[in-house]
Amino acid sequence: MITIYISKDLPLIIIENVDYVYPNGTVALKNINLNVHKGEMLGIMGKNGAGKTTLIRTLNGLIRPTSGDIYINNENTNSKSIAELSKNIGLIFQNPSHQLFANSVEDEINFSLKNLYLNKEELQIKTNEILKKFNLDKYRDRSPLNLSGGESKKLAIASIICRAPEILVFDEPTLGQDAREIESFIKLINTEKEKGKTIIIITHNIEFAFEFIPRTILMESGEIIADGPTQNVLNNNFLTERSSLILPQTRQLSLALQKIGFQDINKAVSKNDIIEYLINFLRNKTTSVQEE
């Protein structure tokens, strides 16, 4: 099930025939072709070791493809340094402890902003603004290594977002986060999306992807095996089984309801569709009981 996206605009990210082989001979990416348009939100899913993280690390040059080309804003990334590419691409690592290294929370934000060559005053104003926005003000002088899991994830995100990159790439942002933290993350990506940012998210959280990510690619053994609207990709039993994913709870519920006679529920794919379907069903039932 491969969907080809046709748009009059040139895609913001063009990945052409990209392969990557690790120095030890492990083939991590095989003939990857992918286009992502400006303002799009793309999910990347697949088993551990499928090549998801390797793929996103090729975007800002941390890994250079063994063959093939990547174009960002119509410019080949091969000719650019990681620092140059990072102006456009903000990569948020899976493990915040791999991303945080400064002596204090404030220094951590300062490090990102200093590389934008702001003057001292601008730097201070911007740092304060970011710390307040992410509710990290109270930890200003604390070592990033002494923050809780959720807070350090928040700081890692803040340290990238403060640079205002055009493309945001998250590696497993919901991993180890509680419901409230996931909620505030969703708010954050919605705000960034409204600003027109392009967002790429690697996730194993099928419920999260199902509800919030419009387009998803599935990867297996370094290849893209499916690309299309998330609800179509994740509702496909064959694909989810192949990628060791469990069907979303909404899909499981609709299948269970179908078994007991709710045949037309198959059209309801999202949580809201099912709620609406059940409300309508109960409303009709109540009306018919009242009529009787």
């Binding site: 690390r57 800002n60 941390l62 340094s81 990681i82 620092a83 990072s86 102006k87 903000g90 990569l91 690592f93 791999h98 991303q99 945080l100 290294f101 490090f111 990102s112 590389n115 934008l116 340290s159 990238i160 640079r163």
Partner: peptide
């Protein structure tokens, strides 16, 4: 290597 990657990803020119 992780620290180098993190610093470069935040615009630090190491190359």
């Amino acid at each position: 290597q992780n620290i180098i990657d993190a610093q470069q990803s935040r615009g630090y020119e190491m190359q």
